[in-house]
Amino acid sequence: MHVLIVEDNPDIIANLFGYLEPLGYTLDVVRNGNAGVARATAAFHDAIILDLSLPGMDGVEVCRTLRQEYRLATPILMLTARDTEHDKLTGFEVGADDYLVKPYSLPELDARLKALVRRSRNEHVQSVLSFGELRLDAGTGRVTRAGQLLDLTPTGYKILTALMRAAPTLMTREAVEREVWGDSPPDSDALRTHIHTLRQVLDKPFPYPMLLTLPGTGYRLAAPGET
């Protein structure tokens, strides 16, 4: 699981790394609100741990900006030392998915993160995803671009689902591999081969490409006018 930590307290950061990394988490960290917005919108994360009290832009503003301006759907777990109903309601109103008051239990934080990610993925499974000309109906397995049915391989379907869920944010190669193969990815050429096959179906018959590659980094979907 790839998690972004937006926290300025070095002791808390060290505790989170010390507990979560041995459990298999991949952690990304920034120490202020502006950097949090930039990092959250520049790369795919399964969840965000967001401190309420941050230098510059506080956690409430970060959450509001991600939800309202960027329409980012990544689950957000908010951390705060403020244990009042008003603060919790404010966090939920701006788009936080869950709330933990310091000091908190690290096993509980782990459990809540996993629950948020499960809930998020289940919601996507039960819904229709759309981005630009693309429409993916997880209930029927049908994928269309501009109304034309796409004949995807099972792996291509998994890759496209992950990219649509993240769109238009970039997904690293590692993040795509985790979505498709979990913790046991195949050799390094396998993803490249599946991306090539997906691109033949997704882009070749159409006037402009939607599946973009950032060499050495990852992949993302682009809307019309971005290419």
Rank of each mutant, 00 (worst) to 15 (best):
R135G: 10
R112E: 02
S127F: 09
V125Q: 13
D110E: 15
P107R: 06
L129N: 05
L136M: 12
R135L: 11
V117T: 08
R135K: 15
E108S: 15
K114F: 05
E108Y: 09
R135N: 09
L134D: 02
R112Y: 06
R112T: 02
S120N: 06
V128P: 06
L134A: 00
N122C: 05
Q126E: 14
L109N: 04
A115C: 15
D110Q: 09
A138W: 05
S130D: 09
H124L: 00
N122V: 13
E123H: 03
A115T: 13
E133R: 08
P103M: 01
L116D: 10
S105T: 03
P107T: 15
A111E: 05
A115S: 12
L116F: 08
S105G: 14
N122Q: 13
L109R: 04
V125G: 13
L134N: 00
Y104I: 01
E108Q: 10
A115L: 00
A111K: 08
R121V: 02
A111M: 08
A111H: 09
L106K: 03
K114L: 08
V125L: 15
R112V: 14
A115R: 12
D110K: 07
A111C: 04
P107Q: 11
L109A: 04
L136D: 07
P107G: 12
V117D: 00
A115Y: 08
S105D: 15
V128F: 06
L106C: 04
Y104E: 00
L116E: 14
E123Y: 11
P103K: 03
L136V: 13
P107D: 11
F131P: 02
E133Y: 08
A138I: 08
H124R: 14
A138E: 10
D110I: 03
L106D: 02
H124E: 09
R119C: 04
L136W: 06
L134S: 03
R135A: 02
S127R: 11
R135Y: 01
L106R: 08
S130I: 00
R112K: 01
S127L: 03
R121W: 04
F131L: 00
L113M: 01
R121F: 08
D110A: 12
Q126K: 12
D137Y: 12
H124S: 04
R119K: 07
L134T: 05
R112F: 07
L106P: 13
L116W: 02
A115V: 11
F131N: 02
L113G: 02
R112I: 12
S130M: 04
S127Y: 07
L116I: 10
D110N: 13
V117I: 13
S120D: 13
V125W: 09
L116S: 09
S120E: 11
D137W: 04
N122A: 03
A138R: 13
G132Q: 10
Q126V: 01
